[in-house]
């Protein structure tokens, strides 16, 4: 009797569902690898060893986890508001450009700490404004945020290339390799032996907590949700869907911009053409896999970060191309989406 009650407990049901998804996803990947003549056990052990089985490597994982989490949090705002913020890549890029604007200046006359703080604030504002522009195009120009966002991604990419090859290029060099490195004191501080700036981790955790509070425990969160579920009905409660959506875009873009700021101050210490590292697009997958819910996001981000960091080991240990990690990632996503789809069909939602 107790056993049956335990089976019906929502916690168990959720755990079982997650296990089934993980099992199917990994099973599908395992089968794929097996047919390619690659041992799934070798791959699993190699990825684990390259990501979570040493503190140093876990530092690498967190370096990837932080911007991915920030982008995912940003997307939660926009998805909740019923907006597809495909322009998130451009927002990361714009945030990185905004931070670089300050960090590349040698004679600002400000203490390093103040410059760093200002640079990250600027990256938040930069990303936020870029996203708000997409929202503005939607509200005032009737441009769907998907197309507006995609267009702005191209503009941001063009802008960063122009800056790196033009006004911000290294002396005597025109290369896609990026700008000159920032002065050492303008790198986000990393303690000796660490591979991660603790400040970046703190920023990411605060951003996650703030997202949880804003979306889950404030009137504003409720307004965003109402806008996303039914904008027409939301008006009846005095909510302005356009304005709420614009604000959600600005906050989401701000978090993505902050991710871009951390990429330049903490990871690369200079501006690169591929500074976003594709985290914006990856975050879209994260949030969809999380079913637009907040709680699973950190764990899914961690899984993807482990795959990315652990994949370095594939060519070293197994002489396999590390793009195999991308195949594993894709197969996991497809499997999980398939399970979600089947569950929906079972419930009669499809």
């Amino acid at each position: 009797m107790r056993y049956v009650q335990f089976m019906k407990h929502p916690l168990f049901s959720r755990f079982a569902r997650i296990s089934v998804i993980a099992g199917l996803a990994l099973g599908g990947v395992g089968l794929l690898l097996f047919t390619l003549g690659i041992s799934p056990v070798d791959i699993g052990v190699t990825l684990a060893r390259g990501s979570i089985l040493s503190l140093q490597k876990f530092g690498h994982v967190l370096t990837i986890w932080i911007p991915l989490l920030l982008c995912s949090c940003g997307l939660l705002f926009t998805f909740r508001a019923g907006l597809w913020n495909i322009g998130i890549e451009g927002q990361v890029v714009f945030g990185a450009i905004a931070a670089t604007l300050l960090l590349r200046e040698e004679n600002l006359g400000l203490p390093a700490a103040a410059t760093l703080i200002l640079a990250h604030i600027l990256s938040f504002i930069g990303g936020g404004l870029w996203a708000a522009f997409a929202g503005f195009l939607k509200n005032r120009g009737g441009v769907n945020e998907i197309f507006g966002g995609l267009g702005l991604n191209f503009v941001a990419q063009g802008l960063i290339l122009w800056l790196i090859l033009g006004p911000w290029k290294r002396a005597g060099v025109a290369s896609m390799s990026g700008t000159e490195m920032f002065a050492r004191e303008l790198w986000l501080s990393t303690p000796p032996g660490w591979r991660l700036a603790p400040a970046a981790l703190v920023i990411a955790c605060i951003a996650f907590a703030a997202t949880a509070v804003l979306l889950g425990a404030t009137r504003f969160g409720l307004q965003i949700r109402a806008t996303g579920i039914n904008p027409t009905a939301a008006r009846l409660f005095g909510i302005h869907p356009g304005r709420t959506g614009l604000l959600a875009m600005a906050i989401g873009g701000g978090l993505a911009g902050l991710a871009g700021g951390l990429q330049v101050s903490c990871v690369y210490h200079r501006l690169l053409p591929s500074i976003s590292s594709g985290y914006g697009y990856l975050a879209l997958l994260v949030v969809m896999l999380a079913h637009y819910r907040l709680r699973p996001v950190p764990a899914i981000c961690l899984f993807f970060a482990c795959l990315a960091a652990g994949s370095i080991q594939l060519p070293i240990v197994l002489k396999l191309d590390s793009s195999l990690a991308g195949v594993i990632q894709g197969a996991c996503v497809v499997s999980a989406l398939l399970v979600h789809g089947l569950q929906k069909r079972q419930r009669g939602e499809l």
């Binding site: 390259g50 490597k57 690498h60 690369y268 053409p273 591929s274 985290y279 990315a308 370095i312 590390s322």
Partner: peptide, 16 residues
């Protein structure tokens, strides 16, 4: 950076 987004030289050196 284009082929290995997010991965830096110091990370790879740590692994080696």
């Amino acid at each position: 950076p284009a082929d290995r987004p997010g991965i830096t030289i110091p990370m790879l050196v740590d692994d080696l």
